[in-house]
Design a binder for these strands. Structure first.
Lengths: 294, 294
DNA sequence: CATACACATTCCCAATTGGAATACCAATAA
DNA sequence: TTATTGGTATTCCAATTGGGAATGTGTATG
């Protein structure tokens, strides 16, 4: 027996004052109504209705219970409705995790635009260069360079960055600036350990196995090591542009078709995805898509 | 599927973080737990848990739903408990209907004593000489002279009043004061229409069919008509004592064994009778019992 | 007194439920 | 990589439950 149904039935009957009328209104047999109320009364341990041969009326306990149930049904229904609306409306809080450079340099504008378009959503960005656990840290969407599939996660590719290769002025002064990418083997390379394999770089679609002097899963760390003159590293240009501008880093292999680094929006796989998540991912994807065309 | 059970299950799981642990704790199979939650999620239309291979965690919707459910389940449980307690404790409001004379002259003291003994009960007395409908007027206990069984009512006899016969001084002056009850046939009689039959009076256990000049279902009305000199009437002594004292009425047939008028406490028949009702009726019955012995 | 009306109960069949076993999936260990 | 483990989902079947129709019971009504 569904207690909820019984309680709704109880409400109806209290309103209509009759089992039969309620049964008709709800298209069920009168016997079923009688049985359900009997079950409810029995499971509660007190009587809800006085029965006379002509009508039913609430007992004093029934009256008080009715009041409480009324509130119960109303509140729970409202909550269920609201939560269900999240599946079709962009409302609620959206928690995003993104690497620091990407967050500050690529995410600010689309987030602003998204919020302006969807004023009922609120966004919280957690800047974190480590790979967060979406479940433990309660994150809706993580932006990642690697499409490493965690348990039950889904990923949507947002963009492909052509990589920019760079080293510090000091390093190039000491080791000479390479003219062609084919000289790569003569240089120390700083690699991203999450690339697989990390020590294989592509130029003009050709594989080059490089001398891996240092590797890390942290882009920031890689950039820092390059600035310190450890060797040649590769990262998306937006991540190091400011260092190039300040002459802390110098770009090399400018005129070669390089390997690209994809960025993904990773999110939990659930049967009913809150619409704010779907909407934000789609918005981001189309934002970067249109940006690429410019 | 009982939504209530499912919600309680949902609470448990949220607390324990595991379907299996919950199943063990509640002595049910893990499959059943899985099915119930699946049913609940499906009927709600949104996902409550993220499932990973090692544990389950609440979705954002799940978290909000949990909070709401927690609060509401708690409230309804408390209400159910409180209402159930009314079956074993003397608490709540007790609505009593009683005829005016009986209320003021016989009920005041036992009610005071009952309240002193049971401070958590509150009593409301509705004074009404007409026969009220316990269902329509929302009365718990009605005090009545007649054991007229209404629909589904129960009755407990509280006491037997020996009747007192009386007439106005004027009436007796005009018609002569009867010496013996055997003269009753010569007098006009005022009868209580709810007695059955109303025109048969008993003296020393003998039947006398009387001349019924007026009858009413209202004791007050009967007393008034007697005062106005219409004839001889019969009522419990406590009802007319004050008129006798003021010489508005004079008692007759003092030394005969007379018919008695029973008084009943009438109450609704319900499966689980709130204890305050049972307690008050029992208290009244034993009060009048002990009074009789004095 | 017969009738009508309303709730309770019974009987029976279809639908649902729950348990046990199994499938499945991901994290961990080897 | 592979095997193992710890967890949820699914499947299958027996048992229970639930609902409808008919019937029973009790009470107003005319």
């Amino acid at each position: 027996m569904d207690k909820f149904e019984c309680i709704k039935l109880f409400n109806q009957i209290a309103r209509l004052g009759s089992f039969t009328a309620t049964a008709n209104e709800l298209n069920m047999s009168q016997g079923a109504v009688s049985k359900k109320i009997a079950w409810l009364e029995n499971s509660l341990g007190f009587t809800l209705f006085h029965r006379t041969s002509r009508k039913v009326s609430l007992t004093s306990a029934g009256k008080q219970y009715l009041k409480q149930c009324h509130e119960l049904i109303e509140k729970i229904t409202i909550t269920e409705q609201r939560l269900k609306n999240e599946l079709s409306q962009v409302v609620g809080e959206l928690k995003i995790s993104a690497p620091s450079a990407f967050a500050t340099q690529r995410l600010a504008i689309p987030i602003r635009d998204f919020i302006n378009l969807n004023p009922k959503v609120s966004i919280n960005v957690s800047v974190n260069d480590k790979q967060v656990n979406l479940y433990n840290d309660d994150i809706d969407i993580a932006i990642r360079a690697s499409n490493l599939k965690d348990s039950g996660l889904k990923a949507k590719k947002l963009l492909d960055h052509e990589l920019c290769y760079f080293a510090s002025p000091d390093y190039l002064k000491q080791n000479g600036t390479p003219i062609s990418h084919k000289e790569i083997a003569h240089y120390h390379c700083i690699t991203y350990s999450l690339s697989n394999p990390s020590n294989v770089w592509y130029f003009n679609k050709e594989k080059y196995t490089v001398r891996e002097i240092f590797s890390s899963d942290s882009p920031e760390m890689i950039v820092n090591m390059a600035i310190l003159g450890l060797g040649i590293a590769a990262m998306p240009k937006w991540m190091v542009q400011k260092h190039i501008d300040k002459n802390e880093l110098i770009e090399v292999f400018e005129n070669v078709e390089k390997h690209s680094l994809p960025m993904y929006a990773v999110y939990k796989n659930e049967d009913y995805l809150p619409f704010r998540i779907r909407a934000f991912i789609d918005f981001l994807a189309s934002y970067f898509e249109s940006e690429k065309l410019k």
